[in-house]
Design a protein around this nucleic acid. Sequence first.
DNA 1: GAGTTTGAAACT
DNA 2: CAGTTTCAAACTC
Length: 369
Amino acid sequence: MTDKVDSGEFATEKNPKELVSTKLELSSLVSDSNVEELPPISREPSETKDNTDQDGVNTVRKHKGCRCKQSKCLKLYCDCFASGVVCTDCDCADCHNNSDNSDAREFALKSVLGRNPNAFNGMSFTSLIDKQCKDAPDTKLGLLSRGCKCKRTRCLKKYCECFQANVLCSDNCKCIGCKNVSEVFHAPGFSAHNSPQVYQRRRRRELPQRNSCRAPLFLIPDPSIQNALDSPSSPSPKLPYSKKKPPLGYTSTIVPDLGDICSLLLAASESATANAEDQNRICIKLDDKVGNKCTELLGESESGNVEEEIQSFGKLIELIDAQYNGEEGSKCKTKTGVHETDISIEQERAVLATFRDCLQKFIKSILDS
DNA sequence: GAGTTTGAAACT
DNA sequence: CAGTTTCAAACTC
């Protein structure tokens, strides 16, 4: 991958699912330390009124008619049935998921609920009887808590329910080679405006070379999903993101979450010990002092003591300066054990310097508020 | 638009 | 519970 050379990368290969709460966009850190100048990014649904991205592809999954041919829309293969609604305006064949076939439908509902009481996101049998298609907020949304089991797609295609729903894979997933985990870094064309799908398509189109760095994943769920998860009817599945925390750099007035910042830095630190799949990857090795400080900050991040947190950040800034100003350079081993070049070290230095600046701005924003 | 690939659901 | 089959959506050409 070449684009990362221009940007730097935080990799989180070491037990990445432990870091799923991290949802900062690194581009705001490494490409432009001046958070103030970043344009505000709306996460309101109105931003994508037609539910399409810049490629004209639907990015906000709405309930849509099914096209079942053999299941009679009475099995969970059917999106409508799986959503607990009857078919309307569908292209299905021999549909029995309607009021005309209420007996068959009820039997099917009972059958499915018998196998899995939570198959309809906790909805009871009676609540499913007359549920209309328009009531479905999103297909199979409630099933996300179950986790995916993807084997080949690395959870980077819409075959993966997690990826399709714009959420990260969680501990509930049993996927293999999952890449739908918390990875935050900056790359050209990757911005908060882009969903993972958008970015993946662009990478496929613009960066077809092999051995490139893994696809990045943007960590912010779709607003419709967020709304659905906030709804009382949804039993708060274990999801790899925290709610209502804007990513760093979204606006100049929003203070980034302390835990997120520390998670990001910790992720960068931990990545150095993980085996990099790609020799071209850039990892960041923080020395123990910085890493320990991050851990410390993580522990304190919910203390509520702003003064202590600011002091801790100040200490962290000092440690970063100490590590990268005259002391030994950072190290990043490839899987062949070869150290990265001085260029990489310089990039890491630049990333951390930017991160340091961001911390300073963060502190300032707290003091100003 | 047809054929292929994929992973969930259903089945054995 | 594991393996296989069925299914419909996603994807490719």
